[in-house]
Design a protein around this nucleic acid. Structure first.
Lengths: 110, 110
DNA sequence: CGTCTATACATAAGACAATTATGTATTAAG
DNA sequence: CTTAATACATAATTGTCTTATGTATAGACG
């Protein structure tokens, strides 16, 4: 785990991109996938994830589908067309940010 | 300019590394150097910079020297030994963060 | 001269995202 | 029968940053 401060501002980008790559997912599944992909280094907290999902839904970037698994509920999220577009933009923006930071810090990442 | 959100958590790293690379600098000079290095993409605001400098000084990572330029004052900052050490750590931490993010977002930066 | 921009410091109010804490509830393991 | 994992959600608090404000010198331009 690195400084959690660095993660700030990346949550929406992560959620959008993971959903873009893995299709229909539910909240808990997203936390697990991110944990896997980051080899345990990024642990999304529920207090951050759920409000973010609700916000992205309110903005029309995600659509939901509630499914009953036995007596438990699951809320599946899928990107809308706009969501896919924004996901791409956010990833580009992140890459651009890294390039700028590399210039400022004079380091070579990748 | 990218989303200012991404910049969160990077300010201390930027200040420490720029000071490490360029030696003795004063606040305003740091903003200009970062602007240059980032080709105008990162504009440090005074409201963020000065409190950060004061904080790093209070933590013993920076030491200061006040100089009079005509009737105007300048406060030069230099890294302490601990500051140099932490600067290195912070840059490593940032690189590590980028590597993790690259795995999660499945992108290739650099 | 007078005004605008750049230089140079600093602090305070407010916004915003994320952490931490808390709450509800089902399912599986020991 | 209690703990851990699954699965949702919201509220209080924290912390960093932006925006606003304040003081003051120096140089450029008319």
């Amino acid at each position: 785990m690195h400084s959690p401060e660095l993660l700030k501002g990346t949550l929406q980008t992560i959620v959008l991109k993971v959903l873009k790559d893995h299709g229909k997912m539910y909240g808990y599944e997203i936390t697990q996938r991110v944990k896997e992909l980051s080899e345990g280094r990024i642990l999304l907290t529920e207090g951050a994830l759920y409000p973010t999902l609700h916000k992205l839904e309110a903005e029309g970037l995600l659509k939901t589908e509630v499914v009953n698994i036995g007596k438990r509920i699951r809320k599946y999220y899928t990107l809308t067309a706009e969501g896919r577009s924004i996901a791409k933009d956010r990833v580009y923006e992140f890459i651009d940010f890294i390039k700028t930071m590399s210039s400022v810090l004079q380091v070579n990442v990748g």
